[in-house]
């Protein structure tokens, strides 16, 4: 009986890592641009379609993953430069509409270009492995390993590089950072690129669990958003930890009450926010101009 829980937890960690990666993208953009990126999930969906056709061209799977990450980075950069930047300092509400609209546009375009019927998408690794009493898909292990590496790199970038420290500055005080010479738009562009690259990677890694169709990322978006809020919306660490917690708890809930799986994350968010209004890791924010 206990063994089942170990497996549930391990698989939950893999799901949670996916939520965590997506939540990190949402938090990075929220922190540097002060907007919610509703398109984080669907950007990944769109890139996954591109990957599907690249795979159909018999390109090697790892190369396709790499290309998808690059495509995500380019897409993120274009979105920042041509959709976000012109509005960034002018209209907060406009920005909100842009990312929501973008999410719909990705979905519509995918349905229009690729047709909306579900397609089967093979994972990179198909087998499963047993670690002691735990049985885990190889792809799940891959997800956990990759997300650990990505988290570590993001952390190094944010805390050890000039770009990262600049990004943290922007997150706390956009104008203050600008005045100090931080090229806020360039750094913002890099952040969008990183976020969309993450989104593309997430799409490819997770799509084999579902089927490829225009809204397969919706549950990921909702849960990643929940994780981001639970994590306090202000740190990639909070997003990662909350994502993992959510993944594990959800997996255990789903084992006992399958019908509650989808609504669980939102219920949890509401309950946590009732007691901890700034999330599990949030802190009160300062304000100045």
């Amino acid at each position: 009986m206990f063994d089942i829980y170990l497996t549930l937890i391990a698989r939950g960690l893999s799901t949670g890592a996916i939520y965590g990666l997506t939540a990190m993208g949402i938090v990075l953009i929220f922190q540097t641009n002060n907007i919610l990126n509703w398109a984080q999930g669907n950007a990944g969906m769109f890139i996954t379609y591109l990957a599907f056709f690249l795979l159909a061209l018999q390109l090697p799977y790892p190369l396709v993953i790499l290309l998808a990450i690059i495509a995500g980075a380019i897409m993120g950069g274009l979105v920042e430069k041509y959709l976000i930047r012109p509005v960034r300092e002018k209209s907060r509400i406009g920005l909100l509409m842009i990312t929501l609209g973008l999410a719909m546009v990705f979905e519509g375009l995918a349905a229009f270009i690729f047709r909306p019927f579900p397609r089967n998408f093979e994972p990179l690794l198909k087998g499963s492995i047993a670690i002691g009493p735990i049985t885990l898909g190889q792809q799940d292990v891959l997800v956990i390993v990759l997300s650990t590496l990505i988290f570590a790199s993001l952390f190094l970038i944010l805390y050890r590089t000039k770009i990262g420290i600049g990004a943290r500055g922007i997150a706390e005080d956009w104008y203050g950072a600008r005045v100090l010479g931080v090229p806020v738009f360039t750094i913002s562009l890099i952040i969008w690129s990183i976020s969309f690259a993450l989104s593309g990677l997430v799409g490819i890694l997770i799509v084999p669990r579902f089927a490829l169709e225009p809204h397969f990322m919706l549950p990921i978006q909702v849960k990643a958003f929940s994780a981001a809020v639970l994590g306090g919306m202000n740190s990639v660490l909070g997003a990662a930890v909350a994502g993992l917690l959510l993944g594990v708890m959800e997996n255990i809930i789903a084992f006992h009450f399958p019908y509650l799986q989808e609504s669980f994350s939102l219920v949890l968010v509401v309950i946590v926010l009732l007691f901890l209004p700034t999330g599990l890791f949030g802190k009160k924010t300062q304000r100045r101009f």
Partner: peptide, 27 residues
């Protein structure tokens, strides 16, 4: 040209050292 603000503009989640070094960003 550089400036300070009437209302403190500080990066609270950074160390003092990191705060000051942001002032060198464009160098």
């Amino acid at each position: 040209i550089s400036r300070t603000f009437q209302n403190l503009s500080i990066f609270y989640s950074m160390t003092v050292k990191e705060n000051i070094l942001v002032g060198l960003h464009s160098k």
